[in-house]
């Protein structure tokens, strides 16, 4: 009877140790800081502006556009329309998950 009880204590101790190890693993998995990447398709925006600054428009990028390119005449004042900026919106962003 004494032997059986001793063996049981050992088993219980091993089970407790295993459980503690399991809990520790789970906790460390969920508390670890991870970087997740949310990917969206980046869109390239082309901003076109009149040199007299009285007209703006946005277009989708086409090969051949560059900042400073003359694209035509301003519909309001007739002066030059120039590509003023080209940049992406969206794309891959990193965010931290705690």
């Amino acid at each position: 009877m004494i032997q059986f009880i001793s063996l049981d204590y050992l088993t219980i101790m091993l089970i407790i140790l295993t459980a503690l190890l399991f809990i520790f693993t789970i906790i460390s998995m969920f508390t670890q800081k991870r970087m997740s990447k949310t990917a969206t398709t980046p869109k390239i925006v082309v901003k076109i502006r009149c040199l007299n600054n009285d007209y703006n428009e946005e277009k989708e990028f086409n090969k051949g556009y560059y900042v400073g390119l003359e694209t035509g005449k301003c519909p309001k004042c007739g002066s030059k329309l120039v590509v003023n900026a080209i940049y992406t919106t969206g794309g891959i962003k990193e965010k931290e998950i705690k």
């Binding site: 980046p42 390239i44 925006v45 900026a85 080209i86 940049y87 992406t88 919106t89 794309g91």
Partner: peptide, 9 residues
């Protein structure tokens, strides 16, 4: 080294 982003602009 990639296409300029809005934040950089």
């Amino acid at each position: 080294i990639n296409t300029m982003t809005k934040e950089v602009y």
